[in-house]
Design a protein around this nucleic acid. Structure first.
Ligand SMILES: [Mn+2]
Ligand SMILES: [Mn+2]
Ligand SMILES: [Zn+2]
Ligand SMILES: [Zn+2]
Lengths: 123, 123
DNA sequence: AAAATTTATGCAACTTAGTCGCAAAGGATC
DNA sequence: GATCCTTTGCGACTAAGTTGCATAAATTTT
């Protein structure tokens, strides 16, 4: 696992450090986007939030990580993969990844966020 | 115009006040979602932000106004209409309303936000 | 290998959109 | 016009994310 993460950094000309490894490990294991607080909880070493956000910014620039804002004024992060949508439930707050077909859209779509009530909460 | 706004309030059991009228007038005239600052600029009377946000919360509960978060950590507001998507350009920051067909989705979709590069900025 | 330079990290102070408590103002009801 | 309820404004607060600066770690130069 660590080798894959190290390779990911190398491929994008980002130096491999402990902090970066810690962040990427959590993101790699995640099945849906996570906030700073959630990532921090899952990390088994402490890290200052300035370090966290600076490294996240670096990952974003390199295209390794993708972020979006939910409607709780927090950012959610995940490893860049195929462009897919996220459904955020206004009630249970769960974020679900999903594929959607938007048809043809002019410009370049980089992120799709749907909000509403999930299957469960919709009764 | 004022009569329509007053009727809108009446229909939703919301008392018609000067502050509420000022907010709704701006939203009614807008062709795309606006932030607090933008609405404030377009209003021709001053209003405290607490008053603004409290009334917006009321409108939301009543289903008159719909809000979403862009990725600039600000909320954008518009009068509730048909459910349509918003495209936010990461470069020029312009917000465009658009219709999209998502096909069938379980649960209830209340808002759709696309981010990326608009037609212009995509070159 | 030591010195010099560059890069990454942590801490604390800061920024800013939005929230909340409270007191004054405004309306309605009697 | 006294009482009650709602709305508004002010100012203090909150919290996610940012920034400046000093230290620490890694890399390059001598
Ligand atoms: Mn996802
Ligand atoms: Mn719209
Ligand atoms: Zn739900
Ligand atoms: Zn654009």
């Amino acid at each position: 696992m660590n080798e894959q993460i190290q390779a990911l950094c190398n491929d994008h000309n980002i130096k491999f450090t402990t902090a970066r490894s810690l962040i990427l490990e959590v993101l790699k294991a995640a099945s849906h986007p996570l906030s700073y607080e959630q990532i921090k909880e899952k990390m088994h070493a402490s890290m200052d939030k300035a370090t966290f956000y600076r490294n996240i910014a670096l990952f974003e620039e390199a295209g390794i990580v993708h972020k979006f804002e939910s409607d709780d004024r927090k950012w959610y992060f995940e490893l860049t993969g195929t462009t897919h949508a996220h459904f955020i439930c206004e009630q249970c707050r769960q974020i679900t990844c999903m594929e959607v077909d938007l048809g043809k859209i002019e410009g370049e779509v980089k992120s799709i966020v749907l909000k509403g009530l999930c299957k469960e909460c919709h009764k």
